[in-house]
């Protein structure tokens, strides 16, 4: 059994009228089955309102299922009376960096989780030091969070979760409110944790570029999981993804359009290097890299940008 397993998971949001009677139910999750192995990097994709955040909240028992069940390391979230024991195993990072930092000093915020778990003082300091080191925030330990950039704040939030030593870390659109630099910082920090700690990562996002390195991708639409597979498998189905109102990475889209125009390109191109090498098969001994083409062929990348720009709102 994997670290997170869901069976026929269903969840309804209820809307109450003034008398406390159920006025309206909205199905947010419908018949979701999951089996995530320890150490995997999972990405969950979906447009707004597809139920991906609701699913994430089930994974650390902020919500409990209306139907079916979800197990975190074999504990059924519906049956455990002390929910914080589940939350300790599956930590969650939220979208808004400001709204999840509790203390006025970085190190105190990172220590908040261990304090709640009842870790002795000496060990809290060790955990905080370690977590800040791993997210590259050690130099800011005595700063006020108000003076940090968005990416730095989000790294503090990740450190705050890591200090709890979870088996699994769930990131609910952690980069949605960040600039490109902040996004890169956060993703690098996550990648580093996965490499050095072997934590299971569940990344919820609607940025396609972020899921390329995932082991497995789930695509959600109106509460259901509609596609599962490796990033390559998912991104080779450009039309299906568009049907679920999702974009594919720019390079993948360019490759797809080229193929439609008659150029011989394989399906599911994920990086610029792959596309360059696919387009230049006659010189396989000299594998081109992205750096070598950015200066020589700016038109190609510009074309890709223009093509996707129309579709992004």
């Amino acid at each position: 059994m994997g670290i997170i397993k869901a069976l026929k998971l269903g969840f309804n949001y209820l809307k109450y009228d003034d008398d406390g009677k159920v006025e309206e139910t909205r199905r947010a999750i419908d018949d979701v089955n999951l089996d995530i192995e320890a150490g995997e990097f999972i990405a969950i994709l979906g447009h707004n309102g597809s139920g991906k955040s609701t699913l994430a909240k089930h994974m650390n028992a902020l919500l409990t299922p209306t139907e079916g069940a979800l197990w975190v390391e074999g504990i059924n979230t519906k049956e455990e009376p002390e929910l914080w024991k589940i939350r300790q195993k599956a930590g969650m990072v939220f979208q808004n960096p400001d709204n999840q930092i509790i203390a006025s000093v970085v190190e105190e915020d990172v220590g908040f989780g261990p304090e709640n778990m009842g870790v002795p003082t000496q060990k809290i300091w060790a955990r905080v030091g370690e977590a800040l080191g791993k997210t590259g925030m050690s130099t800011y330990h005595a700063h006020s969070p108000n003076r940090l950039s968005g990416g730095q704040k989000q790294r503090v939030a990740i450190a705050g979760i890591m200090a709890m030593r979870p088996k699994c870390i769930i990131l609910d659109e952690p980069t949605a409110m960040l600039d490109p630099i902040g996004r890169r910082e956060v993703l690098e920090a996550v990648e580093e944790l996965r490499r050095s700690e072997g934590v299971t990562v569940i990344l919820i996002t609607h940025y396609m570029e972020e899921v390329i390195r995932a082991d497995r991708v789930y695509v959600m639409d109106s509460g259901r999981i509609v596609m599962t597979g490796t990033p390559r498998e998912i991104f080779s189905q450009v039309d299906t993804l568009r049907h679920y109102r999702l974009d594919v990475p720019q390079v993948t889209l360019l490759a797809y359009e080229l193929k439609k125009a008659g150029v011989n390109v394989p399906d599911g191109i994920l990086t610029m290097d792959e596309l360059v090498n696919a387009l230049l098969p006659e010189t396989p001994e000299k594998a081109f890299t992205a750096e070598s083409i950015t200066t020589s062929a700016p038109d190609e990348t510009a074309a890709a940008v223009n093509m996707t720009a129309e579709r992004r709102d």
């Binding site: 300790q88 190190e107 989780g113 304090e115 905080v128």
Partner: peptide, 21 residues
């Protein structure tokens, strides 16, 4: 949001809580 983030980080009142400082 903050309440949810606090719960997600195992906050369950002052009982059995230790202090960092």
């Amino acid at each position: 949001d903050l309440a949810m983030a606090m719960e997600a980080r195992c906050y369950h009142g002052g009982e059995n809580r230790t202090q960092m400082k």
